[in-house]
Design a protein around this nucleic acid. Structure first.
Length: 922
RNA sequence: GCCCGGAUGGUGGAAUGGUAGACACACAGGACUUAAAAUCCUGCGAUCAUUGCGAUUGUGCGGGUUCAAGUCCCGCUCCGGGUACCA
């Protein structure tokens, strides 16, 4: 009986399906373990061989945990809303729901072939009403809550209203967009509209005027992480800045908590670091500066309060609200011209253009510590969105201020002893202060850190400013002018937004006859008929962004069919949060921040019992493509083989890797590949055409895409699973090279050969030998350690070694094989099931127990010591195991070979490393 | 610019500070076969030696710590990823 993987895999996949082998339910008698993959967006291209890498790793881990007695939740679903399906709809008119459905079908087919242990009863799709009902529900909650900065949690907006009606804005501690001051009487005197507008300032989901990344080509707003280098991630279209009224989520109110609880997570340092930088906490001070000869005062933020004596000018962001106030009549024209030039620059230009630009406002501010008049400038190197949009410039100690000062010939005052600012600024926070005394503050002689604190104390005391912590993290813009997304559960009454009643959810996505914006420039939902409430109030026309549906999906998997709640509380008490989350690093600043925010919000509401969604995160590396090239001699249709290409003037051309095997070109297939190669001629070496190769991104245009179905068809799913792990460390990027797969496939056939030979079933019931047990327990030890440490690639090697050993010693003991098969089951479940069945004839290997390690079996009779002289190994020595260090030393020194290396000298020192090495220092 | 990774044979990659190159691929030689495929065996960092044993050198570069460094420390070079006027 041959290893017929096709039949075996088909048989067991059917068996698992029919027996619902991987179905899980809450089971309080067993410990839970939740393993989650980042769910895919089902693109039209289907899966390539790189996509399942993480899924295979998580599947191995899930199966391992299951065999260790855990009740494992391992679900899968689809992030089904998104731009590509909508773009496709615009081009072809096909409804995105249809495209999405088709793509999901294709994904499922591909996934099924690989033998994953998902509980498909729990499948979710973000575009299904049953699912997005809860996305809309969460949005309503966010609208109905504000963030209390004192209690550090979200609280119902009613408690804020209550406080306003009793005490006005006095004493409230709420995260907000803008500080307002009003009395109770003023509040109670406000109209409904005014009150709603005021409350909007505090809601966690709020409508706000914000500068957004507007992509005219896509007709929508994009989040910062959906834009790179000034173009959209999807499609690569230019993006510009525009002020728009948009739904936003007050993610910034959670900045501190998002930062602090990072410490409790088992995430890689690099991704934690990325999130830390993204959140960007900086401690500093806000200070007020007066404009000379006027009542105008403005606030700046600085982390270097100590440099106040070196402030030689001030700078406002072009968009700053202060600009209007401070520009003098004489300067108005020049300022307008400057602002105009900025407006015509795209965000991209502003980012790439490092030239110094700016304009003088005509006004002067007073430095409160020197009483000097310093000019106020406008420049686009100051950002409106960070701090207060205004800075005090200290050219001596800030490189940007320095460049500005040099360009406009502004004075530079060094404040640190011995620093040289003739060529560049001195930005380091170290050294002794000089030139820093006046108006009651004397920093001279202090080091920088002391000076910062002293200045903060001083400005606090004198009422010049206050200590302030700033975050880089901005609120998330939550509106998209698109069709294929969750509709907002929002209607407008006299221009004021109100939430639908929860009982009206889900608010279904309406049908439209065009997926383009309306003629009046409204989003596609503007085409929908009867898009209004029963009382004929218009509904919101925007939809939610891609990250809406993926922010709380992990919770829904726990209780996917619950119609009354996002998740039942007792169910959530059991499954809690994700123990292991596997996915790519590209979500570090998007999904993984939003999801943490969303979860913390639900935690504040008592909906979920854990403050963090994903306990342990593993980031799988990218699988790159390995492209092949042929070399065409210029202006001919003749192709020259790789090693002799330099004798000609050639152009390398990508060739489909599927017609190249082991870098040998299949010439006939090449001729048939494309019409223009039909009459191609070849200059061969040794009768073969050898292709060149390079590692590149796996993509259609490089012709290096390898499809998992093709591999499964040719070698089987178990081989694919093993080989993906064998390629290299999970977290590392590595190229896919189909060539190496033979080795893994051969191993599985060899394993099969332990059980079947010439139609004979070999295993027998008999006591295993010591040698057999040793080989097995070496494997148990290695594989257990490897899986727990995500070092799957080295386990594959361990399996190969073990099978080789067992083959060599002609092992045929059922007891050994049974345990071997269980160890194998997480990696290669199909062949493991088949072999398990041949050994026991009952049940599934999934119900087996992970074998326990018996260290006794690993004990050696003797140990091979490497005997070194001055660190150099000279010979090896077998010494009985258990020999004491002293005796090992004695035996080593007395050995006949030692005399030769000692050359009659007495050793100075002897180091014995147990079971390993004896080093003799002469 | 800043932050984080990485650099080991022809290739992918192994190595709790302890015999570097596990395990595979590729390649070369051999066995079986009419032949091919499949399978099995042998060799495979470099240099020198070779009748066998071997010797020297070797983990991007330069230093250091140590009896012992791919691994730890200091200083570079190159490559990959992230991020960027964040005051």
């Amino acid at each position: 009986m041959e290893y017929n993987f096709r039949d075996i895999e088909k048989k067991w996949q059917e068996y698992w399906r029919e027996n619902q082998t991987y179905r899980v339910e809450v089971d309080n008698t067993k410990p839970k373990y939740y393993v989650l993959d980042m769910f895919p967006y089902p693109s039209g291209a289907g899966l390539h061989v790189g996509h399942p890498l993480g899924y295979i790793a998580s599947d191995i881990f899930s199966r391992f945990k299951r065999l260790n007695g855990f009740n494992v939740l391992h679900p899968m679903g689809y992030d089904a809303y998104g731009l590509p399906a909508e773009q496709y709809a615009i081009q072809t008119g096909q409804h995105p729901a249809i495209t999405t459905e088709q793509n999901i079908g294709r994904y499922r087919e591909q996934l099924d072939k690989i033998g994953f242990s998902y509980d498909w009863n729990r499948e979710i799709r973000t575009c299904e009403p049953d699912f997005y009902k809860w996305t809309q529900w969460a949005f309503i909650k966010m609208f109905s809550y504000y963030y209390n900065t004192k209690e550090n949690k979200a609280l119902p907006i009613e408690s804020l209203v209550d406080s306003f009606s009793k005490n006005g804005s006095n004493g409230i501690t709420a995260a907000c967009s803008k500080e307002f001051e009003f009395t109770a009487a003023e509040w109670n005197g406000m109209s409904e509209k005014e009150q709603q507008q005021t409350l909007m300032n505090y809601r966690i989901a709020y409508l706000g005027d914000t500068m957004v990344n507007w992509c005219p080509k896509l007709g929508t707003v994009l989040a910062n992480d959906e834009v790179t280098d000034g173009v959209s991630v999807r499609g690569g279209y230019p993006v510009e800045q525009k002020l728009m009224r948009q739904w936003c989520l007050r993610v910034s109110s959670y900045a501190d908590r998002l930062l602090k609880s990072l410490d409790n997570l088992e995430w890689s340092d690099s991704i934690k670091e990325t999130q830390k930088n993204w959140i960007g906490r900086s401690e500093g001070a806000e200070m007020q500066f007066k404009i000379a000869d006027s009542d105008i005062e403005f606030t700046i933020f600085t982390t270097r309060a100590d440099t106040i004596f070196g402030v030689t000018f001030m700078v406002l962001a072009p968009e700053s609200a202060y600009v209007k106030q401070v520009v003098t009549a004489e300067q108005q024209a020049e300022v307008d011209a400057y602002l105009d030039s900025i407006k015509h620059k795209t965000e991209r230009d502003r980012q790439t253009d490092k030239r110094v630009t700016g304009v003088f406002t005509g006004s002067y501010a007073i430095n409160p510590l020197t009483n000097e008049k310093i000019p106020v400038w406008i420049s686009d190197y100051v950002l409106a969105g960070y701090g207060t949009g205004a800075i005090m410039a200290v050219p001596a100690h800030d490189s940007r201020d320095y460049a500005f000062a040099k360009h406009f010939n502004l004075p530079i005052i060094p404040l640190i002893e011995g620093c040289d600012v003739s060529e560049e600024s001195f930005d380091a926070k170290e050294g002794k202060m000089i030139n820093s005394a006046g108006n009651g503050l004397d920093l001279n002689g202090m080091d920088v850190k002391q000076a910062i604190n002293a200045t903060k104390e001083f400005i606090k005391e004198k009422g010049l400013g206050r200590v302030k912590v700033n975050f880089r993290l901005r609120d998330a813009i939550f509106s998209r002018q698109r069709y294929w997304g969750e509709p907002f559960p929002v209607y407008y009454k006299e221009g004021i937004p109100y939430m639908l009643d929860e009982s009206k959810l889900p608010l279904l996505l309406p049908e439209v006859d065009s997926f383009l914006p309306t003629e009046s420039g409204e989003p596609p939902l503007g085409h929908a008929k009867n898009w209004e409430t029963e009382d004929h109030f218009p509904l919101e026309l925007c939809t939610m962004p891609g990250f809406a549906g993926s922010s709380a999906y992990y919770i829904r998997y726990q209780d996917p069919h619950n119609n009354d709640a996002l998740v039942d509380q007792s169910v959530n008490d059991y499954w809690r949060n994700v123990d292991l989350y596997i996915g790519g690093t590209e979500h570090a600043t998007g999904h993984l921040i939003y999801s943490r925010f969303w979860n913390k919000f639900l935690f504040d509401l008592g909906i979920v019992c854990e403050d963090e969604p994903y306990k342990k995160l593993v980031n799988q590396g990218m699988i790159q493509g390995r492209s092949n090239f042929v070399y065409r001699i210029k202006d001919t249709n003749t192709f020259v083989s790789y090693n002799i290409r330099n004798e000609y003037d050639v152009t390398p051309i990508h060739v489909d890797v599927n017609i190249v095997s082991n870098d040998h070109l299949d010439i006939e297939a090449f001729k048939a590949w494309r019409p223009e190669f039909h009459n191609a001629e070849f200059i061969l070496e040794d009768g073969k055409y050898i292709c060149g190769w390079a590692v590149e991104k796996m993509s259609k245009s490089m012709f290096n895409v390898v499809n998992p179905d093709v591999i499964v068809e040719k070698f089987g799913a178990d081989t694919l699973r093993f080989y993906e792990m064998f390629l290299g460390p999970l977290e590392q990027s590595k190229p896919w090279d189909t060539n190496g797969i033979d080795g893994v496939h051969r191993f599985l056939r060899k394993l099969w050969g332990l059980f079947y030979k010439n139609g004979q079933f070999l295993p027998v019931d008999a006591e295993p030998t010591k040698e057999e047990l040793k080989s097995l327990h070496k494997l148990i030890k290695k594989v257990t350690w490897d899986i727990e440490n995500f070092s799957f690639n080295t386990s594959v090697a361990a399996f190969m070694i073990c099978v080789n050993e067992l083959t060599q010693i002609k092992c045929n003991k059922k007891s050994i094989f049974k345990e071997l098969v269980v160890l194998l089951a997480p990696f290669a479940p199909h062949i493991a099931e088949e072999l398990w069945h041949s050994l026991s004839e009952t049940g599934s290997v999934c119900d087996a127990q992970w074998p326990a390690l018996n260290e006794d079996h690993l004990k050696e009779d003797s140990v091979n010591y490497a005997i070194s002289f001055n660190g150099k190994t000279r010979f090896n020595l077998e010494i009985a195991s258990g020999t004491s260090k002293e005796d090992v030393e004695k035996i080593a020194l007395e050995h006949e070979n030692s005399a030769k290396w000692l050359e009659g000298k007495t050793p100075k020192k002897v180091i014995v490393v147990p079971n390993k090495i004896v080093n003799i220092v002469i």
